[in-house]
Amino acid sequence: MPLFHDENRLITEQSALDNPVIRYLAYGIVVALLSIVQLIFSPIIAVDNIYPNFLLIFCAIIALREGQMVGLVAAFCAGLIYDVISNDVIGTNALASILAIFLVGYFHREGRFRQLVGSYRFLILVLVATLVFNLVYHILRIDTSEVDFLGFFLKYGIASTLYTTVIAILPLLVMARKSDI
C-alpha cells in the first residue's frame, strides 16, 4: 500500500508540473524564496565569508529541465531579483548568471532530466557554472590594477565554487532517490 500510495503521489505531482504556467510560476516562487534564503541564510552558513549560490543551482536545474532558452531567462530574472534584494549593482549577478547557465543549457537533453541531475555529471555542471559565475562576477567587481585578481579568485572564487558544488549534492541525492522510485 505505501508503495502504491507513493507512486500515486508521484503521478499527481508530475501532472501538476506538466502545466507550463504552473511550472513557471513555481519556478518564480522558488527563485524568490531562494533569493531570500540566499540573503538571510548565507551569513549563517558562510565559512570565512564564503557561501554557496543556491540560486545558481536552481537555475542550473531549470536549464537542464527546460532547455537553454528558459534557463537563460530564469537566470536573468533570478540574478536581477538577487541584485535588487541584495542591494548589489543591478545587472552584475544577472550577467554572471546568464553566462553560467548558458553553458549548462548546452547539456539539456529532452526526457533525460532525472538521469542528468541524479548523476555526478550534475555536480560537474554546477562546478563549471559556478566557476564561470564567480569568474565573471569578480572580473566585474575587482579592479585588477589594485588587487591581484588570481589570488583573490583562487581564495574566494574557487572556495565558493567548491561550497556550491557540495550543496548541489542535495538535489542530486533527491533526484537520484526519485529516479530509484
Binding site: 536573468f76 536581477l80 549593482v89 552584475t92 544577472a94 550577467l95 566585474l140
Partner: peptide, 18 residues
C-alpha cells in the same frame, strides 16, 4: 540589458567593469 542596467546603476562600485 545587463550592461545597460550596470551603467545606469552605481557603476563606480564596479571597478573591474570600469
Amino acid at each position: 540589458i545587463c550592461f545597460a542596467l550596470m551603467s545606469m546603476g552605481n557603476a563606480a562600485e564596479l571597478r573591474g567593469f570600469r
